[in-house]
Design a binder for these strands. Structure first.
Lengths: 192, 192
DNA sequence: CAACAATAAATGAACGTTCATTCATTTTTA
DNA sequence: TAAAAATGAATGAACGTTCATTTATTGTTG
């Protein structure tokens, strides 16, 4: 195992451990000692890879945000018709949020508490540009409502986060069958 | 000032202080000593009104959830036509989420982290029954899509939480003018 | 290639703080 | 003056982080 690979190895073990603990107990109930134990290293070792706890969680945020957008645009390219392109992205995101639950709930926690430094939050937002471009194209074609991208995101994408949370609490399940009807609601909300 | 009033007085001062601190720093960065100081009492006094910190925050959750639904159904009654009734409720909720920011972001934190005991979360959900009834009536009339109330909530109500969060971060503002267009998106999402 | 030295990585115990909670008193109320 | 409410100091546990050592890796030399 090369030097570089080993570094990545412990680093990602620590990120993974943090994800698991934060998912279950929240940021402030995920003590460094437990993170270390779960990752199979000594507490002091964390500080070889991260500046401090805040840095650790900031970096985890970026890492997951990036994996999220990678997934979101899988199979997408900007030559597709607007509706088709949106459909692909929407289903990618729905899959991510409903299958990779730990990652998705972690992102929800980050976006709804003061746990992430604003600087990193801004950084994590950039990845969604292709979706915003798609919407702008749709607006020019008269297909998509002329509303702020924040409003479009709120109605087209954000609702899935709620459904994920309900699914996580076992009080609702979004079956494959009704997933298409759910997509339709998203489309109806933003289409002209 | 009567005995009962005084009790309420300190109790609500403590709840208010907790809300302010949690809003700014999150649940675990809101120490009891600060809560006490902000409420103008000694730390030990908290334990005369609440069992412990968890109980304090659970009760704050219920209190705010209840004020939220009081606000949501202001001016509403179930004899109104479905769309009109929904419009009233939607605008009530939008007003609450966009004006009473501290309360709204507190609820967001509660709903997206493990900070509230499941039991209290369930309790807080009950208040929304009139909205679910309205939707069911709409479904019977063929006006509203036949989807789980969770899906309807996700698309009709939940998006406003996202817009609130963006407004709180000063990267977006939902002006009065475009609030109606935003309502239209909500309605389009759930109407047949 | 064996022996050793130099460097890097990893460790566990320890530190200083901070926290939620308790308790012996004091203060207020009835 | 008895009962109830409120207090501030004290307590022990838990936390993030540091540091003196130990262990592992790499490079060098005979």
């Amino acid at each position: 195992m090369s030097k570089k690979e080993k570094i990545t190895d412990k680093r990602s073990a620590l990120l993974k451990a943090t994800l698991n603990l934060v998912h279950n107990r929240g940021f402030h109930d995920a003590p460094m000692v437990k993170i270390a134990k779960l990752a199979g290293v000594a507490p002091a070792t964390i500080y070889l890879y991260f500046e401090n706890k805040q840095d650790l969680v900031n970096q985890l945020y970026l890492e997951i945000k990036s994996s999220f957008s990678d997934c979101a645009f899988d199979g997408y390219n900007d030559t597709l018709p607007v509706k088709k392109g949106f459909e692909i992205i929407w289903h990618n995101i729905a899959n991510y949020k409903l299958n990779r639950i730990k990652e998705a709930t972690f992102l929800s926690q980050c976006d709804n508490t003061p746990m992430i430094d604003e600087e990193f939050r801004k950084e994590g937002l950039k990845h969604l540009q292709p979706l915003l471009d798609l919407w702008e194209k749709g607006q020019q074609e008269g297909i998509i409502k002329v509303l702020s991208p924040y409003v479009l995101y709120a109605y087209a994408i954000y609702p899935v986060s709620f459904l994920m949370a309900m699914q996580e609490r076992h009080i609702f399940t979004l079956s494959e069958e009704i997933r298409n009807e759910t997509f339709q609601a998203a489309w109806d909300a933003i289409k002209v």
